[in-house]
Amino acid sequence: MTHRKGKEGAFLFLAPALLILAGITLYPLLHVFRLSLHRRLLIFDISRFVGPENYLYLLGDTRFRNALGNTIYFTVLSVLLELLFGLAIALLLNRHFRGKGLMRTIILIPWAIPTVVSARMWEWLYNPDFGLLNHLLGFRINWLGSPFLALNAAVAMDVWKTTPFVALLLTAGLQTIPRDLYGAARIDGAGPWTLFRKITLPLLMPVILVVLLFRTLDAFRVFDAVYVLTGGGPANSTETLSIYAYKILFQTLQFGYGSAISVMVFLCVGLFTLLFIPLLRRRKV
């Protein structure tokens, strides 16, 4: 009886969230799936069902493979660095000192600037002629001009921009670790490194994993930051899957194929999530 009541109550708590998600995001998702099974070229007045044809074509598409490689590189490197920096900042701020509120506001600045503006700002900073970066370094590097540097420059920008996201959530996570745990361990003679390894890290791990999951999902779908910075160039060396999908969808109006690329993005992050969930489960205990 009480159990039943609890269940119904639970559903009431859940309902608004499910309704909003179903109403707003379900239709677009189904639409993209459906389109990806079509050959839809408006300019040739073609629109017909072709089944998995688009996906088969993807297999042999070297540009797709290139974009996938770029995306994975971008995601792995930027998420790792963000996690590292974010954790360091969160640990640094997890103590009492004067001006803490100000400090926590300052670390939010990169996240607070609109992406479109900050990407342009970095384009300006990277400019070899009048950019601040080379001026401070004292020598000239064509940051966005070489394929290798350009992708890493995009990573650097993203790390700067999104570290606050990580730092903020980890700071919140640290706040919920009871202080007395540390006190007890200190009495037992544990040093700072042991404290970190035995208490902070395990208790923070669930938040870290959630952050890692969301950052990976976002980084894998990165679009406007990199698109404004480099346009995918030079020579497609910074073209991510989202940029490729964008070009196919909106520059060449191949809605079917562009949707198929988008579904691949979905499948990639979906696969990642499925592999990742057991980690979350294990930590929950």
């Binding site: 239709y27 998702l29 993209v32 779908r221 993005v265």
Partner: peptide, 15 residues
Amino acid sequence: LSTSMFPPIATVSPL
């Protein structure tokens, strides 16, 4: 979570 796995540029048209 699956609702945030699509690239936004793909869902902007249907939305």
